[in-house]
């Protein structure tokens, strides 16, 4: 058990497929809704409090040992967009591959058997954190940071945004990320007692709608 495992898991170079996903930023850039660092910050803040919170709570709940099948069903119900469900499962499958190579254990093998086409990524992330000896807050932090770092990196590539500006956005969001992480862990604790209905279900309408538009594009750089 080592807390440094958190650095391995949260590293943007951890080979789990995230680099090909923009978290909705590609669609928002094309629609003209992200044109500068301020827009990116607003986008990331919205994501943090909606999809991010949900992912953080799911990851924390999985790290606590809640049944991943129930959590996966809860993630499905919180993801009306079929394009986003597909993306979440693909990313989950890719993460599981990296996780099983990094922290091999029976629990991850079992997850691979239950979900040959992939479970929702935050659920896999939580179980990975668990396999790495990390706790629920670590899992929540990883999920939340990914929910904003993905769009930030993608926007640097899509808009040729100054990478220092994009990193500044992430730094400014850090205190809010702390707050959301606390809420996510608290909700996961509640779900341990009351079941998955205690998990947050916050949504950003444009994230869902634009994910469907994006999935229908004939040419795109990012998978979601």
């Amino acid at each position: 058990m080592t807390h440094a495992a958190l650095l391995v898991l949260a590293d943007g170079r951890f080979p789990a497929g995230g680099h090909a996903h923009s978290g909705g930023a590609e669609a928002a850039v094309k629609a003209g809704r992200i044109t500068c660092a301020a827009d990116l910050e607003d986008f990331c803040r919205g994501r943090l409090h909606t999809a991010g919170l949900v992912a953080g709570a799911l990851a924390a709940a999985a790290a606590l040992g809640l049944d991943p099948r129930e959590l996966d069903a809860a993630a499905d119900a919180r993801t009306p967009s079929p394009a986003l469900r597909l993306a979440a499962r693909r990313l989950g499958r890719q993460l599981l591959r990296a996780a099983r190579a990094s922290w091999p254990c029976a629990e991850l093998d079992e997850l691979a058997r239950w979900f040959p086409k992939g479970a929702h990524q935050p659920v896999v992330l939580g179980l990975t954190a668990r396999a790495a000896g990390l706790g629920a807050p670590d899992a929540a932090y990883c999920a939340l940071y990914e929910s904003v770092s993905g769009p930030a990196t993608a926007t640097v590539r899509l808009l040729s945004l100054d990478p220092f500006d994009a990193t500044g956005v992430l730094a400014r969001l850090a205190p809010e990320l702390d707050e959301v992480a606390r809420a996510a862990v608290e909700a996961a604790g509640a779900a341990a007692g009351e079941g998955p209905q205690a998990l947050p279900a916050a949504s950003g309408p444009l994230l869902e709608i634009m994910a469907e538009a994006h999935a229908a594009w004939p040419a795109r750089l990012f998978a979601s």
Binding site: G18, A154, L221
Partner: peptide, 21 residues
């Protein structure tokens, strides 16, 4: 077809997970 997030070398070298899938 596999999307590469504007980084084709990443998808074939640094993070091959999508191509493996």
């Amino acid at each position: 077809a596999v999307e590469t997030g504007a980084c084709p070398h990443t998808a074939i070298r640094d993070d091959i997970s999508a191509n493996l899938e």
